[in-house]
Amino acid sequence: MAASTIMKKTGAALVAPVGWLAALIDPPLRALQKATGLNGMAAFFLAPNMAIFGIFVLFPLVINFAYSMTGGSALFLSGRTYVGAEQYERLLTCENYLDKRSCVEDLFWNAAGNTALFVLFQVALMTVVAMITALILNRELRARGFWRAVFFFPVLLSPVVVGLIWRWILQRQGLLNYLLHQFGIDQVLWLTDRFWAFAAAIMVSVWAHMGFYALILLAGLQAIPKDLYEAAEMDGTRPARVFWRITLPLLMPNLIVVIVLALIRAVQIFDEVYVLTGGGPGTSTMFLTQYIYEIGFAQLIRNPGLAAAASILMGAVLVVLTLLQLAASRRNQNAGAAK
């Protein structure tokens, strides 16, 4: 309660100077309204957001295609030469597609392969853990709000903070190795061994985001009518059967949203893993976004065209995933309407 009064007070203090500014611009806006009518005012209200949106989202999206068809290291399009599909060819050409070392751009194939593996395991683990958490939070618990908050806490942390916390815990002489030592297990090189670094990247990102998905699943679970469960109980249905026959089918819409959202996010994984491992050891935890960042920005001789082509390929995957989600949610809506 105290927090909300503080918020109200700071809000009022912030709004006060904006208040007289708003009063000040009213007369010219009245004139505008007289001249252009209601449609004009609609355009006026839309303008700031759409201008920013157009300049910083839509326009870049369009010229991204132009960038992907040019070569050289010049930053502005005017200084770049048209090369057609050369960048895409460079990204996609391999002598043997099963061996990434035979590819022209082996770093890209490495990043793409890592990302695919990461997406597969991270989303699977995330969904299972979030599902168990949601099912548990949906039980009759005392102080459910508290428990819900517990699992949500890491979601708010910044990727840099997440990366650094775990880098500190997973380092060679860190807390985890100490705890393992207590159980008589030899120390594991969590961040410098190829396998364990990859596993750590998956575990840390699940840790950081699981609470968000558990929350969506919990909202779905709470929307399932209680009388269904009561009827099942009266029939003496076994709990496992209740889960497979009632809970899971009715939770499907939320579950699909969770899986697709998790997929979309996992494809773009970057920040926390970059801080945790820097993409290493070697390039074993380097994912697509980091590849784009390295090629387009971090390396000495930048290659914006190649980075743009790679980002378009990644964007294509994301569009497919989003369309899948839309199709799934529409089917669910139709199913819901049919009920």
């Binding site: 910083f56 989202v57 326009f59 870049p60 999206l61 010229i63 991204n64 960038y67 930053l75 773009q268 970057f270 976004t289 784009i292 960042y293 387009g296 920005f297 914006p304 980075a307 743009a308 980002s311 378009i312 990644m314 964007g315 994301l318």
Partner: peptide
Amino acid sequence: SVILVPLY
């Protein structure tokens, strides 16, 4: 992450 280059 998809529009990094042109946005930059």
